[in-house]
Simulated scan of single mutants.
Amino acid sequence: MDNHLQPQLKNPHELKNVLREVPVSYELSDGRVIKTLLVYLPTKDGVSYHSTLFEKIREGILYNFVFSCTEIQKKLGVDDNKSAEKLFEKAIRKISQHTAKGELGELLLFTLLDVYFKAPKILSKISLKTSRRMPVFGADAVHAQFHDGKLMLYLGESKLHADFKSAATKATNSIKSAKEKYVDEFDLLDSYIDFPNINPKLEAELLDLLDPFSSNDIASIIHSPCFIGFTEPGIISGAESEDEFLKKYTDLACDYISDFFGKAEKQGVDINETTLLMLPFSCVDVLVSEFIAYIGIEK
């Protein structure tokens, strides 16, 4: 088997310059090491700066998030200099103002998993929606990658919320639910699995590994990354330099990380089977409003 799945996004270095990583690691109070990814946006005039992110979303993230690789390759393969714009416009028609907040969170989770985890999306749920106002059910992201020859299935959860701790409560409950309902995800994968370097042989081998009705220990390959985007204006507007902001961010994160993993354990989620991805904004509601306006999302 080809022990590598190709990431979907082709400009990871550009995206890492927009969604910037804080190079820091954490342990819980009892010394246990946990997995985290702290990212942040550039700031301007004391607030989080969204325009560059929105540009990248328009240039390709959105349609890569919404559609399968096979459909994108088919559409972009047409000799038409407007094919990318047509894909973008079709992607917008899958999203409504009613669902935009949740789907922006899912889009950010998709981007971080592809860019930082190098794990491509293997199921494009948004493309399967029959109504733009309908949310996605089950896991918010279904990605995969091999690590040391072993397949890792990422069933991701995302929350965009004004309050981190409220989001953590909801997210950890959703993580538990998504794992319990994995059979529903597999049925979709069995019909619609897709990723950049897919071929019939690799597809069959992956589906065999992912089959919950086989003798495989499915629980051992499922990982549950959780993205939480949250409102935190104080650490952004109150910092006079990027270094000061990063210090405030990493200090605040200690409390939030402890809260998240404590809630995960109460839900029966093994802390080794989840990663917390964090991104602060000056205001989540402003972020979503600007996203709707910039992208041109209809009701």
Rank of each mutant, 00 (worst) to 15 (best):
L87H: 04
K201A: 11
S241I: 10
L160H: 11
D270I: 10
E290V: 07
S96L: 09
K129M: 00
D148Y: 15
F65A: 01
F65M: 05
L188R: 12
A253W: 02
K118S: 07
G77D: 10
T111D: 05
G138T: 09
I95Y: 13
E244W: 15
F245M: 08
K150H: 14
I175H: 13
K299S: 10
M278E: 02
G138A: 10
I271D: 01
Y192T: 01
K129S: 01
F65V: 01
S289L: 07
A162N: 12
E240C: 05
C254E: 09
S127L: 10
T43D: 12
I72R: 01
F137V: 06
Y49T: 03
D187K: 15
I193V: 15
E240G: 14
A253S: 12
K165E: 03
D270L: 12
K86A: 10
Y154E: 00
F291E: 01
M152E: 05
K179D: 07
P42S: 14
M152K: 14
L113C: 11
S51R: 14
E180D: 15
S96R: 08
Q73Y: 06
R132A: 13
D208T: 10
G138Q: 10
A100Y: 09
K82C: 02
N81E: 07
L287E: 04
F164N: 00
V66L: 11
F260L: 05
A141S: 13
E71F: 13
G149W: 12
I61Y: 05
V24K: 07
D285I: 09
T70G: 11
A100G: 08
F186W: 14
F291H: 02
I72M: 04
K179A: 08
A84L: 05
I257F: 15
P233I: 10
I257M: 13
K44G: 01
R133I: 03
A141L: 08
K101I: 02
Q145V: 08
A178E: 01
K118E: 07
F291P: 02
N197G: 05
K121P: 02
I297F: 08
F164R: 00
A139R: 02
I95G: 01
D251V: 05
C69F: 10
I235G: 07
L151E: 04
K16S: 09
E244Y: 15
V78Q: 14
F54I: 03
K176I: 01
K170A: 06
Y63V: 00
V39K: 02
G234D: 03
E244Q: 11
A100H: 13
K263M: 13
H161I: 03
F230Q: 06
K170C: 05
S158L: 07
Y116T: 02
V288L: 06
T231F: 05
K16N: 04
A293M: 11
P225K: 13
L107Y: 04
T99I: 12
K165W: 03
S215F: 14
S220A: 14
I236W: 10
D217Y: 15
E106W: 08
E242P: 06
L246D: 03
I221Y: 09
N173M: 08
S29P: 02
L160E: 01
